[in-house]
């Protein structure tokens, strides 16, 4: 059993044509699944994608769920040294971004919460705050060089829109991003805002922030910490 398993993962070579079928089947199943999970990543790495799938296979996925193998692939790629990363330095961020889109798309639904400056909140499973060094959310139609040149700081909220269930991302200013991070860590919006009173006048930015927070709450992207997930 160990022999067929090792061949299936591509760890051992074999001359047995029938055993080889298993290696091809496993490779093709994984390649298909990972191509669906990481279409943009794949378009940038081109022919190297097959090599990466083979290396990942040999490494041995540890989840019984094929979709979750995509998360393991993203972790595997981000940890490994690879010459591709010198040529395309944003690949680590891209593979993470595409996985986060999957996570957010499949997140369980949560109930909406009322907004109050005094309550504590957390980001729901259908929202992620991230900071990238490249404009990963705007790579389509752009070449690697153009994206690489645009190196900077990109703060994003990746979220699932409850109306059409599509995953979207919105650019956040450094101020809003860090404030949301604080709220997600357990500060009330009021505490998070007062902490920044040296850089922003609460009277001035308060109404804008309140509108933004209310929208996040109405979409169940920001949920009260006292409300647990509505679905089992």
């Amino acid at each position: 059993m160990e022999k067929i398993f090792r061949v299936a993962l591509g760890r051992d070579e074999t001359k047995d044509q029938r055993l080889k079928i298993y290696r091809d089947l496993v490779f093709s199943r994984l390649e298909d699944a990972l191509s669906v999970s990481f279409p943009i990543f794949k378009s940038f790495v081109g022919e190297d994608f097959g090599r990466l799938v083979s290396e990942f296979m040999k490494n041995g996925p540890r989840t019984p769920i094929l979709l979750e193998a995509s998360r393991e692939f993203a972790e595997f790629f981000r940890k490994k040294e690879d010459p591709l990363k010198e040529r395309i330095p944003f690949l680590d961020e891209l593979v993470l971004f595409e996985w986060l889109e999957i996570e957010v798309f499949n997140a369980e639904e949560e109930e909406t919460s009322e907004f109050s400056w005094e309550r504590t909140y957390r980001l729901s499973e259908s929202a992620r705050l991230v900071s990238f060094s490249y404009p990963i959310h705007r790579v389509e139609g752009r070449g690697p060089e153009e994206i690489t040149k645009a190196k900077g700081k990109y703060n994003l909220l990746i979220y699932r829109d409850p109306l059409d269930l599509e995953v979207k991302s919105v650019d956040l200013t450094e101020f809003v991003h860090s404030l949301l991070c604080d709220v997600d860590r357990g500060l009330t919006p009021k505490e998070a805002l007062l902490r920044r009173k040296e850089t922003a006048d609460p009277e001035e930015v308060g109404p804008y922030l309140e509108r933004f927070f209310r929208e996040l709450c109405s979409k169940a992207l920001l949920v009260s910490r006292s409300v647990h997930r509505s679905l089992p």
Binding site: M1, I4, A8, Y22, L25, V26, R29, P61, P64
Partner: peptide, 28 residues
């Protein structure tokens, strides 16, 4: 959750040493 009461599976194996191949391998 989905009130499903029938579960079928395969007379095979697909994992070893905690690793998975996502295919149905034959047992002796």
């Amino acid at each position: 959750e989905f009130e499903i009461e029938v579960y079928s599976e395969h007379l095979s194996f697909c994992s070893l040493g905690g690793e998975y191949v996502y295919d149905l391998l034959p047992v002796p």
